[in-house]
Design a protein around this nucleic acid. Sequence first.
RNA 1: CUGGCCGUGGCGCAGUUUGGUAGCGCACCGCGUUUGGGACGCGGGGGCCGUGAGUUCAAAUCUCACCGGCCAGACCA
Length: 641
Amino acid sequence: MVPASGGVVLVVDLDAHGPRMPVSSVGGGHQVGVLGVPGEVGGDVRALRDDLQAFLAGIVEASADELGGEALALERRTDTGVGEHPAAVTVAVVQLAHVVAVDDQVVPARGAVPFVRDRDVHGPTMPAACGVETWNEAAAGWLGPSPARRRRRRRPRPDSSRERGPVRWPAMAKAPVLTPQADDFPRWYQDVLAKAELADNGPVRGTMVIRPYGYGLWERMVAEVDARIKDAGAENAYFPLFIPESYLTREAEHVEGFSPELAVVTHAGGKELDEPVVVRPTSETVIGEFMAKWVNSHRDLPLLLNQWANVVRWELRTRIFLRTSEFLWQEGHTAHATEADASAYALRILEDVYRDFMVDVLAMPVLIGRKTKQERFAGATNTLACEAMMGDGKALQMGTSHELGQNFAKVFDINYQSAEGQQETCWTTSWGVSTRMMGGLIMCHGDDKGLVVPPRLASNQVVVLVIKDEDGVGAAAEALVDEIRAEGIRVKLDDRTDTSFGRRATNWELKGVPVRVEVGPRDLVNGEVTIVRRDTGDKRQVGIAGLASDLPGILDGIQADLLAAATARRDARTVTVTTIDEAREAAQTGFARIPWAALGEEGEALLARDAITVRCIQSADGEVPASEDEPGTIAVVARAY
RNA sequence: CUGGCCGUGGCGCAGUUUGGUAGCGCACCGCGUUUGGGACGCGGGGGCCGUGAGUUCAAAUCUCACCGGCCAGACCA
């Protein structure tokens, strides 16, 4: 984008909102001028665009003629802001090789370009140079007369100004609501968080505010996961936010793993505390302390506890939902009489609670497997995990289940008397899923139109949209909503007809509601409504009678299709390799499967230099290996969040 | 913590090089016309210019320090 030496870059900003940072956009210092155009879509912007296209084409021709065919690069970029923009920001950057002549006017260097009246090279300031009149006046000398345009401007606009000729630049044809994923995935993620009203940054660094729509999705996750945890026999309890610092220090590996990210309270009640208390980063220690009290006999085992709570880990780099200083989660803690029992329970949680929820409800085809020693939880003897692939091919750990061996039981004295009358030490587990799953949901199914929520998760599965309240549309929509609700579907009525249809339709798309039903007077006279699938965009007219009873099947279809699409994408981006170099290469775009025997801890360390980690180790059949040294296992490696 | 970019109404950004009246688009409010894919006209409201010192007659603009955000790392759910 930055021109060769001696070059000149012309930046033309066709945004309907005026120039926006073209200087930095092109790297600075080389631009000769900026045309900013205020106005509205369908108005002068379109006319200007036509002229500017001709103008740019003119430059191309002119430079070819004048410079003996020397090449000239014409680039087009689309950029978007986050505001509620009706049009994309389109910046055309023309890189002029040396000198350009247009309409007999030679433009040799910066500063000499006549079409911007501003003194500076940073682009016109809004009031001074952005006005259309200024543009006309200034551009006349450069562009030459543009009779067509002037004619258009003077004449009263025809009734439909938006039907002006075809737009030749696709980038201007349709304004993206969000930064496209392909342009900048992290930016897209931020845009979705804001525009789907999911979450905001909190005032303290690394914290987040979960907005009602986002929290509604989390509540649905909680409900589904909680039901499965209870099915697995665990009961909910609640332990304190504050933990004595001394608890943490009892388990050596645990304290080493968590110390750097602890938030510690040293003062309270106006004075310094005798012993500082830490804000829990996880609750193995307090819960261990109380398990020790509650477990006496083998009859007390297994003790299966869970709590829904917030925890705090002072992370160095945070990102909403994926890694925040404070997050919400569920942490299960269990104590068992035998290692085999603990081990089986940790696996049961992974498969029956986590994988089942993620695959069946979130429609995310997660991989399950063991973590390497390197990736293991601090204090665990074995860590199992669910790993999902995001839309950009990177991995996200969605949930973990740990076997803690007797590490915690020993230091917290979780002992029991066996049937034989012996004192025995318990075997414990811990397992959790967090608000991070929200990030996984967004990045797994989301597209350039926003979030896509699988029907089984959706807090609103169907939205019924009143296009305009005429000819009984409102009443028909209300009746339809009642009918749909009677089918047990979570349905929302949108009758805010003081907001235009298009805006509301776009908003529900951003929020990812699986099915939109549009009720308008035109369809209604035929007894029909329009239904639109969020995932495919498929839109059709259907009879209003019988729609409600068809919806459960439609929602099931969407659920299945989302899982199939995510699975297909994951598989397409997963490569089976045999060497470390191949794995490194494959992990640039997705997952690589490599025999653990071919990788090993040395290979793991090697890949780590390129930010590639072993996500999990699987048996050849994709299941969880029975032991650390099971032969023939496969390591799945990837870049990860 | 390291490197890069960046902090100006709710959001996105001009303005800083060369100190001198704080601006634009979107969003918001009112009225009217609209509503089948982010409507339009007219009229409005809203800003300790991230914070603190310093230089100056004068600081969004110059200097220093600090804080915060984004991206890439190290750490991790």
